[in-house]
Design a protein around this nucleic acid. Sequence first.
DNA 1: ACAAATTTTTAGCTTTGCCTAAATTATTAT
DNA 2: ATAATAATTTAGGCAAAGCTAAAAATTTGT
Lengths: 219, 219
Amino acid sequence: MTRSEENYIKTIFHLGRQGMEAVSTNAIAELMETKPSSVTDMIKKLSEKDLVNYKRYQGVSLTDLGTQTALGIVRKHRLWEVFLVEKLDFSWDEIHDIAEQLEHIKSDKLIDRLDKLLDYPKFDPHGDPIPDKNGDFKERDRKLLSEVEIGTKGVCVGVKDSSASFLKFLDRNHIALGHQIEVLEIEEFDGSLNISINQNNMQISHQIASNLYIKINEQ
Amino acid sequence: MTRSEENYIKTIFHLGRQGMEAVSTNAIAELMETKPSSVTDMIKKLSEKDLVNYKRYQGVSLTDLGTQTALGIVRKHRLWEVFLVEKLDFSWDEIHDIAEQLEHIKSDKLIDRLDKLLDYPKFDPHGDPIPDKNGDFKERDRKLLSEVEIGTKGVCVGVKDSSASFLKFLDRNHIALGHQIEVLEIEEFDGSLNISINQNNMQISHQIASNLYIKINEQ
DNA sequence: ACAAATTTTTAGCTTTGCCTAAATTATTAT
DNA sequence: ATAATAATTTAGGCAAAGCTAAAAATTTGT
C-alpha cells in the first residue's frame, strides 16, 4: 500500500464512522484538501484492490478488508501519539502531525514492540480508543459535556475536536484528561456552562462544552 | 527535500567517505539499485539546489550544505537504531531497514527529544558515531582486527560490514560490541585468526576479521 | 415534473522519479 | 596514437498522484 492509499483509507474510515452511509467524494476531497477528481481516481484504484465498495455516483464505503486496514493505521497513529506524549514529553497539540508521518512506517514487529513499551495502552492522549493487534477496541462510555444536566459529575476522558487551537486553549485553561468536572449551572441564553474542574470554578462556552467528553461518575 | 533526494544525499555521503574524490554515477546507481541514467537525472536536481557539486562526466561531491544535510540524515538513522535496540529490544541485524524508514520523518524536535530519551548516545549499535545537533562527531580510534599483530588485546567496538548476514553470524558466535578480544595466532596460509573472545577461544576467517573493529587496550 | 444547482466523473495535462536505448565522452590497451 | 571498452548523459517513455475544464448524473426547488 502506498502512503497515499493509506491516507485515503484512513479518511474514508473516519468519515464513515459518523453516519453509517456511504461517504461522498466531495467530503473526502475536502478533508484531504484535494480535488474531487483526484478522489475519484484513487477510489477506483482502491476499488480494484477490494478495499472499498464503489458504484459510480453512489459514494464509497470500506470493505471488511478496508476496515481492517484502516484499523491497523489508526492503531499505529494512536500508539505513536502515546509514545510522543509519554516518552518524549510532547504536548497533546503537537503530536498529530508527527504521528501522521509515523503511522506509515511499515513493520508489524515495530508496532507490537512499541505497544509493549507503552504497556498496551487502551486510549490515546485525546481519549480515543486504540485498536489491538486484531483491530478490536472498545469505545468508552462517555457523553459530551454539552449534553448532560446540571449537577452531573464526571471525569474528563476525551476531546471531540483535536485541532491544535482547541487543545492549546485547554492547556491554557488547565483542562486535561483525568480532571474531575461538575456542571454547576447552564446558562439558558447562550448555553454556556459554569463548571468546577479540579476544585476550580470556571465559565465555558457551549462550543467548548460540545467538544469535551466526560465519563459520568458511578453512583 | 523529498525522500528520494534524501536517499541520494545519504548515498553520496557514504561513498564520499571512503576516498575523498568525486563519487561516480555508476557507484551511486549500484548502491541504490537503480540505473545510472536515473542517477544523472537526480544529480542535476540536487545540483540545482546546491546540495552537490557536479560537472558532466566528472562525478559528484557534496557541497557544505549537502554534507550538513547528510549528517542530519545519518544522525536520525543512527539515533533511531539506538532506540530500536535499547528501547524495543531489536537485535542489531533487524534495525537497518526500519531505521531507513524512520530517518525520513520530519521533525527536529522529535529527534532532539529522542536524543534526550536515549541519553545522548555517541555511537550506534554497530559502533558508528552519531553526529550531534550541529553535525559534529568524533570517529573512534579503532583498527580492523585483520590489521593488528599477534598478542594485541582490545575491545570490539564496531563492524565494517553491517549486513544482516554478517550480524547474524556474529550473534550465533556470541560476538558483540564490548567484548574483550585477544589475537592469539594468525595463520600464514589463509590469514585466519585464532582469538580469545570473552575468555573463549575461537577461529575466525580473514574475512570476518577484516570486518570487525577493535579499540586496542591502553597499556 | 422538470429546470437549476450540485455532485461526480471523464479527459487530458503536469511533475516526480524511474526506465530503456542510443549517443557522447572518458579511459585503457595495444 | 588510436581503437576498443567503459562510463555517463541524452532522448523519449511510463506510472503514480495530483490538477483544470468540461461532460454526465444526481439532487433540489418550485
